[in-house]
Computed example of a mutant assay.
Amino acid sequence: MRILYIEDDSQQASDVAAMVEREGLVLDHAGNGAHGLKALGGGDYDVVLLDRMLPDMSGIDIVSKMRAAGSEVPVLMVSALGRSENRVEGLDAGVDDYLAKPFAADELLARLRALHRRASGEGSSAIILFGDMECHVKARAAYRQGKHIALSPKEFELFRYFMQNGGEVVTRVMLLKDVWNLDFDPQTNVVDVNVGRLRRKLEQGFDSPVLETIWGSGYRLRAV
C-alpha cells in the first residue's frame, strides 16, 4: 500500500511514517495542501491520510478539490475536531473515513488497510480474512481459528459487513442502511439484539473477544 500523508506537523508526520513503515507500507509526506494536491497529480497512491487543519487550506477544501477533479483515491481524515458534526462535514465533502486525534497506531493502521481493501475490491472476494476469522462469501460460512460458526442468514450478513470493515467503527446507522436496507431508524433494538447474538457466537469457546462496543459510536471488529 502506498500512502500520501498531508500534514503540516513534521513531528506527527515522522511518528506516523515510523508506524506505517514498520508494517512494510510506503508513505510519502506533503507539508501543506498545495504540495499534497501536486503530489496527488503526479503519484499513484492507494490511500490519502489527510489532516483537517492545514496552514494554506483546510482538509475539507483538499478533498473537495480531489473529488471535483475526479479522483477516487480513498481518504482517511484525521483531526482534533472529533464531534459528530465535524465528522458529518468531512463525510459530506467526500472523505471515506474520519479518525479523531489522538489515535492509537493499531486503529490507524486497521482503518488504512480497510480503506485499501474496499478500494481494491478485496471486500467482495470469495473469502474475506481478518484476524483469526474467515468469511466464505459464496458458501455463506463463517470460521474462527478454523472452527465453523453456525450463523443465521441475518447474522451472516452482519458478519460479512463487519469483516468487510474490519478494524473500523461501524455505526447503527450504517448497519440499518447497509444490512437492513433502512434509510430511517425504526426506533427498535433490532441492531443491538442481532449484534449481541453474533458476538456470543464469535466469542463463545475462544479466549479473546473480537466484537467490541464503542460507546456513543457503534461497534468494531478487532483482529486478534
Rank of each mutant, 00 (worst) to 15 (best):
E7M: 03
K101H: 05
F103G: 05
E122I: 15
V169N: 11
V190L: 14
D46V: 05
L37I: 01
D61T: 01
S64V: 09
R117C: 04
D92L: 14
G31I: 01
R67N: 00
G82H: 08
L151W: 03
K177P: 10
G24A: 13
M174I: 08
P55W: 07
A34S: 14
G218D: 05
D132Y: 14
V26T: 15
H35T: 04
T188D: 03
G59S: 10
A34R: 08
L108S: 09
S217Q: 15
V73C: 08
V75Q: 00
A69S: 12
I214E: 13
A93S: 10
V210C: 06
I62M: 02
L202R: 06
V26D: 15
I62R: 00
G33Y: 00
S10R: 12
S125V: 08
D44A: 13
L112R: 07
I149H: 05
Y219G: 03
Q164C: 11
C135G: 10
L81W: 11
K65H: 13
A68H: 12
N32Y: 03
A110N: 07
V78T: 07
H148N: 12
K101S: 02
V169H: 06
S71T: 04
A17E: 14
G121I: 07
A100V: 09
K147E: 06
L49R: 00
G24H: 14
M53R: 09
L112W: 08
G41R: 09
E7C: 05
N32V: 04
V137E: 09
D56K: 02
A80D: 09
L211F: 08
N86P: 03
R144N: 10
